[in-house]
Amino acid sequence: MALQQITLHVNGEDHNLTVRSADTLLFVLREKLGLTGSKPGCLNGDCGACTVNVDGWPMKSCLMLAIEAVGKQVTTIEGLHNTPIQQAFVEEFAFQCGYCTPGFIMNCHSLIEQHPDADGQTIKEWLESNICRCTSYIEIEKAVKSVLRKD
């Protein structure tokens, strides 16, 4: 399998890496950069636990090759610090086991950036790509709406 030298721009820093062409962005984030906040849940694009932000948009990092992320700005959950959406998730008890949480937060974070005034339908279209098995989604809905309203 061919190895490549690439530079990834992650959470505001450049990283020079040697990767296999077939390595997913998720694999490289976790195994090469130690950014384990992005979670493998299905490796198939079904669950959204691995969602990161690429150039401002949510991306399931299991569906993107690391080499495809070259030249793009990648933000992972580790790149968010005390943002309103994180605060809202805490206050609204919008997680239980926490495994899907980074992916949900990155999706919400991207939504808030792209559609600061998103209505219920837009929120649904965005968030139905992720699965939370613990909560009832009501808590997540409250969290994301509280942040959108504040904006």
């Binding site: 950014l35 580790e78 206050e91 980074p102």
Partner: peptide, 13 residues
Amino acid sequence: IRKEAWDKVSGRA
């Protein structure tokens, strides 16, 4: 608030 709350929203968990 859950004791591990901030770990879970920051990717540290």
